[in-house]
Design a binder for these strands. Structure first.
Lengths: 144, 144
DNA sequence: GTCCTACTTCAAGTCGACTTGAGGTCAAGA
DNA sequence: TCTTGACCTCAAGTCGACTTGAAGTAGGAC
């Protein structure tokens, strides 16, 4: 029995146990059973959690991730849909990355530019324009 | 009087009027006055809104953006702090971009890879590892 | 002069992703 | 055996960024 205690998983994955319970409730992970009350996990859950974390940093919601992780459709039609979705997500990510790159350049320029107000700097305004031009109004993230 | 009505601003900026009121309440934008009850805005507010949108897509909170837009400290010490902050933010963005790039590559690979389960693919696992290795546990975004 | 409509305020609601708190349980060590 | 403390459940709270709803008001078309 190589199963891991919830505390162990929490520690190794770097998330609080409450998050693991929450993920379980959402169907993102599953425990193999209990020892007494305590959840036990297959070590593979760590990779799954890494995958979840990865998806989160990519900007996917837990529901989206759940859908990616658990193909819920017809057994044989699914893999293609899955691959299709992954490709789509990759494209989205690509767009996002390009936006952020422009933004980064804008900030860097603004940090170096001597103009009193950044808005007075033509370079900055040009960058600003190209950063916002193609942005397809999606609810922005927003960190801690 | 070239001022814009709130509806005009909302339309041109592509945000609901309620958002403009909210931003005003938060001190992110200001109206030049009222016509009757209705807020009027200087056309410059559009650039400011673009800047705000830009900051949002970069993952900054409204409070952070407010701080960037309105230097609140000593008149002469501020510009440097401002530039310093912008440079820091640019660096953060850069890290984030690199993470996302790895992620995008992982997704693309997974989409093309013939392995039954992505976890069985060594390439994917390697990518996964490098994607999550350096990730400094920050609360992830999460779209609509 | 009246009416319509788009605005106004303010309080409250929503959404996602968790966290927190109260009250309960049980495996393991003294 | 008893205690301890880390886990358990379930409900409720939090946070940021808005949105929604009720009730009120004024500019402009008729």
């Amino acid at each position: 029995m190589t199963d891991l205690d919830i505390a162990e998983v929490a520690h190794r994955a770097g998330v609080p146990a409450s998050t693991l319970r929450y993920y379980e409730e959402k169907g993102l992970i599953a425990s193999t059973g209990r020892r007494g009350l305590r959840r036990q996990y297959d070590p593979g859950v760590l990779e799954r959690l890494a995958l979840i974390a990865m998806g989160r940093t990519a900007g996917f919601s837990l529901d989206e991730i759940a859908r990616m992780l658990t193909p819920d459709g017809q057994p044989d039609a699914q893999p293609d849909l899955d691959r299709q979705m992954l490709a789509t997500k990759a494209d989205e990510l690509d767009r996002r990355i390009r936006e952020l790159a422009v933004l980064r350049d804008s900030l860097r320029h603004a940090a170096a530019c001597p103009a009193a107000s950044h808005m007075e700097c033509p370079t900055f305004r040009r960058l600003l324009k190209s950063a916002t031009a193609a942005t397809p109004r999606r609810r922005a993230p927003g960190p801690p």
